[in-house]
Amino acid sequence: MHIHPAERLIFLIIGILSVANVALIWLKDIEFHFTGAEVMLATAAVFFGVSQAARRAGRFIRTSNVLLCSPCSSSTAMSAPT
C-alpha cells in the first residue's frame, strides 16, 4: 500500500494527538467509555499500524536476506530447481 508523504504526515499528527489524548485522560483521571465508533476507529488504527509494520518488515527481509541464504533467495535458484 503506497501512502503519500502528506497522508503520512497527517497520520503522524493523528498519532501524536492520540498519544496526547491518552496521556491527558490518564493524568486528569477522566472517565472514558468506548463507544462502537471509537472501537471501530481504534481497530482501523491498529490495522493500519500492523499493516505498515508488516510492510516495513517485509521490505527489510527482502532487502537484507535475513531469513534466506543468498543462493536460495536468488532468482536463478528459485526458478530453476535442481
Binding site: I10, I14, L17, A20, L24, I25, K28, L41, A44
Partner: peptide, 17 residues
C-alpha cells in the same frame, strides 16, 4: 482520514479543559 483527525482533535480540545 480527515474525519479521524477531527475526532482526535476535538477530543484534545475538550481534554485541555
Amino acid at each position: 482520514m480527515f474525519f479521524l483527525y477531527s475526532y482526535v482533535g476535538s477530543n484534545l480540545n475538550v481534554l485541555l479543559l
